[in-house]
Computed example of a mutant assay.
Amino acid sequence: MARFSGKVVLISGGARGQGAAEARLLVAEGAKVVLGDLLEAEGRALAAELGSAAQFVHQDVTKEEDWARAVAAAEAMGGLHGMVNNAGIYVPRPLMQTDAELFERHMRVNQLGCFLGMQAVVPAMERAGGGSIVNISSTAGLRGSPGALAYCATKWALRGMTKAAAVDLAPRGIRVNSVHPGPIETDMVKVWTNEQRAVRLSQIPIGRIGQAEDVARVVLFLLSEESAYMTGAELAVDGGASL
Rank of each mutant, 00 (worst) to 15 (best):
L149P: 00
G113A: 03
A54Q: 02
L243D: 11
A212E: 10
R127H: 09
A72W: 11
T186I: 03
E42D: 14
K7S: 03
G173P: 00
A157M: 10
V167H: 05
A73V: 11
R69G: 06
M96G: 00
V27S: 02
H106R: 08
L35R: 00
A241Y: 14
I136S: 10
T62L: 01
V57M: 06
W156M: 08
K7N: 00
V33Q: 06
R197H: 12
N194E: 15
A47L: 08
A216L: 11
E225H: 14
T139L: 14
K32A: 03
A233T: 15
E29C: 03
A2S: 15
A170Y: 07
P181Y: 05
T162L: 13
T231S: 14
V167C: 05
E226Y: 04
Y151M: 01
V27I: 03
Q196Y: 09
R172N: 08
A212V: 06
R24N: 02
A53S: 15
I89Q: 06
A150N: 01
A45K: 09
V179E: 03
E40N: 07
A233P: 07
M188C: 04
V91F: 13
I133L: 10
G113S: 02
E75H: 11
F115N: 10
V215E: 01
L95A: 12
W156L: 12
K7W: 00
S137V: 01
N194I: 11
V219G: 13
E226G: 12
S227Y: 05
K155P: 10
D214T: 08
E234N: 13
V237P: 12
A124M: 01
V167A: 14
G130Q: 05
K155R: 11
L39C: 08
G19D: 01
P181T: 06
E64D: 14
A140Q: 03
R16S: 15
W192S: 02
A157G: 10
G43C: 09
A28M: 00
V191T: 13
N135D: 07
G131I: 06
G82E: 12
L50P: 04
G182W: 08
S137Q: 04
K155W: 06
D66E: 12
E225G: 15
Q97L: 08
G182I: 11
R93H: 05
V33L: 05
S224E: 08
V199C: 07
K155D: 12
E226K: 09
C152R: 00
G6N: 14
A212H: 07
V215S: 04
N85D: 09
L116Y: 09
